[in-house]
């Protein structure tokens, strides 16, 4: 075996051990904060794993969403858990679960090993799908096969995904509004001299990277999801710096931003019946421009929804963040 293969295998082994250890620590460790940090590092290791398994698109998405946005949401939950706890309650105690440990451990191990064995025995010839998808992608107007699956072959999945995203936001808001829980972290009232200059430095970089990922999506790793997540991260930073002021009234700009992706996509689905027998088929002419337009709308909606989910799970009376979540003032 050549040295490079040996090194690669060694790296894989280390990666797998790291993943398992981090997951174990995140779940069994004491202290919620520690668990959340372990989980965020687990997400970053997953991003490396995706890259190692030949899926750079997933690596980008995981780093931005799995580790970044999820981590921010969970850290928020930590602070909420601490500040909303009653004074007589033990900090986040764990009652013994109904399932005893001696039963849970072999049970889950059996499920995991059984699943691994089943997956291993699945034939790897791929069947008709990969061949068709890869062959079609070679002549497709989108050079990135994953983007062509997302926005052409399986566009219905992406359409419904946007619906789920919107539904999650609406559901979270309904829950949070219902109890009228107070905002946990109002806009910081003490001056933070470093933040504005940091934001000034990081805003153009994130905007440029996000827009590049959006643009690259048609021919290289990237796309609306990764770009939307990056812009969403920028919005979260603006919120943390107190640059977005939470308000109670629903704003037109915000409502427009969170619905434009689903709306435009649905409109396209209806209009496509004019030129094709099935919905979500692309026209002969101008398909590329159409995809770019839809992707841009998706990117805006994903970014805005992620920011609002972050803010919403934090200070519940928020109806909107006053400014453009993409980072403009």
């Amino acid at each position: 075996m050549p040295v490079s293969d040996l090194l690669a295998s060694g790296f894989d082994v280390l990666l797998c051990i790291g993943l398992l250890w981090l997951a174990w620590q995140a779940i069994t460790g004491t202290g919620l904060f520690r668990s959340v940090v372990m989980f965020m590092v687990f997400g970053l290791m997953m991003a490396v794993t995706w890259a190692r398994l030949g899926s750079p698109d997933l690596a980008l998405a995981e780093a931005a969403i799995g580790a970044g946005i999820t981590g921010a949401l969970l850290l928020n939950a930590c602070r909420a858990a601490v500040s909303e706890m009653r004074s007589d309650e033990q900090p986040l105690r764990d009652r013994p679960s109904g399932v005893p440990k001696w039963l849970a451990l072999p049970l889950s191990l059996a499920a995991g090993v059984g699943l691994a064995w089943l997956m291993h025995s699945i034939p790897r010839d791929g069947g008709p799908t990969p061949e068709a998808a890869i062959k079609a992608a070679e002549t497709h107007f989108l050079d990135n096969p994953i983007t062509s699956v997302l926005l052409d072959f399986r566009a219905i999945d992406t359409l419904l995904e946007m619906a789920v995203l919107l539904l999650a936001l609406v559901g979270a808001r309904v829950l949070l509004d219902q109890r009228r829980l107070p905002a946990l972290y109002p806009v910081p009232d003490h001056p933070m001299p470093m933040l504005p200059s940091l934001l000034a430095m990081i805003t153009p970089v994130l905007l440029l990277t996000g827009l590049y990922l959006f643009w690259a999506g048609s021919h290289a790793p990237g796309g609306a999801f990764q770009a939307g997540a990056l812009l969403g991260a920028l919005g979260v930073m603006y919120q943390l710096a107190g640059r977005f002021t939470p308000t109670h009234e629903p704003g037109t700009v915000n409502a427009l931003l969170i619905t434009v992706g689903l709306g435009l996509f649905s409109l396209f689905a209806c209009l496509s019946l004019l030129w094709a027998p099935a919905p979500l088929s692309h026209p002969e002419q101008g398909a590329y421009a159409l995809v770019l337009l839809i992707e841009f709308a998706l990117m805006l909606s994903i970014a805005a929804t992620l920011v609002l989910l972050f803010v919403g799970s934090r200070s519940l009376q928020l109806r909107r963040s006053t400014n453009h979540p993409g980072g403009r003032q």
Partner: peptide
């Protein structure tokens, strides 16, 4: 498989 087991546990 092991990650699934850890999660289920």
């Amino acid at each position: 498989g092991l990650l699934f087991a850890i999660g289920l546990y």
